[in-house]
Amino acid sequence: MKHSQKQLGFSLVELMITLTLGLVISGALIQIMLGNNMTERLNQAVASVQESGRFIITRMRNDLLMTGRYDILSPSLNRNVDVVVEAAVVQNNPVPLPGDFISDGTVGALEGASGANDTLVVSLQGSTDCRGYKLGYAANEEFYVVNQYFVSGTSLQCRGFDGRVLRGQQNAVGNDGNKAYTLLDDVYSFQVQYGVTAAIAAQDNSSIPVRFVTADSLAALRAGGAQVVAIRIAVLIRADSDVNIDPVPSFKLLDETAIQPDQQRLFKQFETTITLRNVKNFIRSRNI
């Protein structure tokens, strides 16, 4: 009498089905892992560029708020020069232009040609320049500060000057070669506009900006008695990440022609307008 034997194990068809399902599931898991990794990298890039943008906007706002400040009664003010004349210089020229200073005629606000980066220069009474330097003054002294902001390569930098040195009133002390201090890297574009009041002929001392213009318009407007009472800045920052963005969107900063970065990276635009309270108060107090 014969006994039937049961077949043990899997058939070839079953093995093939199992392997196929395993490959499908493994592929799906790999795609999920890759997607999660890309999402994490993208989130890190967004956080990075947001942090950079918040930092530079806050830093520039804090620096520029004091533009045009000159307190002739301040006990901390160094009085080695005629401070009455110096007060008039600072208050009437809160945004210096090239040619304003006899010792260095290149220092002044500039409009970048064809959408190139702008150069911003402001003057004020302060205890340090934008780099934190005292420029030879005592620890408790304030002086005529001129700060310059510009882009070198992809770095937004600042350089500080003693306004009295620029005016030829004294020799430079402690300027440290006027070396620049980097505020932020990965800056793709830096643009500036200036809010100006009406001309003197308008008999308007409300100190309200009637329009925003570029630096190349300031000389003619200043000659007519208009004054800068606000500064608008825009920066385009690249994220510190290798995340590829395709296609890269275009960006329009202030009145410039829209630009499209040539790198497939994450970029973000930041803008702010700073009201120059010290200049506005000066405009309101003067007789027109």
Score class of each variant (00 low, 15 high):
Q157K: 13
K179H: 07
D100I: 03
G99I: 07
P96V: 02
Y144A: 00
D118M: 09
A180R: 08
T182F: 05
N80T: 12
K179G: 06
R79W: 12
A116I: 08
A180G: 14
V107G: 03
R167D: 09
G136W: 02
V90K: 02
P98G: 13
S48R: 14
A45T: 06
L124T: 09
V107C: 03
N171M: 10
T182L: 07
S155V: 05
G53E: 07
N92H: 10
Q148H: 11
N78I: 01
G115C: 15
G126P: 04
R159Q: 11
D82C: 06
R167C: 02
R59D: 12
S152F: 11
V89M: 07
D100F: 12
G132E: 11
T106C: 04
G153N: 09
A47W: 10
T128S: 01
N80S: 15
S74R: 04
N171S: 15
A116W: 05
G115A: 14
S48Y: 12
V95G: 09
N171H: 04
S152W: 04
A47D: 10
F101T: 12
R167W: 01
I72L: 14
Y181Q: 08
Q169L: 13
T154S: 15
T106A: 15
T119F: 11
Q191M: 13
R167Q: 13
V84M: 03
A180F: 02
Q191C: 05
N93W: 04
N147K: 03
G160I: 00
L183D: 05
R164Q: 11
S103F: 08
Q169K: 09
R79E: 14
D71H: 03
K179S: 07
R79Y: 10
I72D: 08
S48T: 15
A138T: 04
F55K: 03
I57T: 12
G168N: 11
A180T: 09
N92Y: 07
V84H: 06
A45V: 07
Q170G: 00
F190A: 12
R61D: 14
Y181T: 14
V146M: 00
N78R: 05
S189C: 09
A109F: 07
A138C: 04
F161A: 00
V145M: 01
A45K: 06
F161D: 01
F55Y: 11
G99K: 11
Y181R: 10
Y133P: 02
D186P: 02
G112D: 07
G105I: 13
V83M: 06
S52N: 13
G136S: 05
D63G: 01
Y188F: 15
Y137W: 07
D162M: 00
N178D: 09
L135Q: 00
F143G: 00
N93V: 04
Y188W: 15
L77Q: 08
F190E: 15
L97H: 15
Y70S: 04
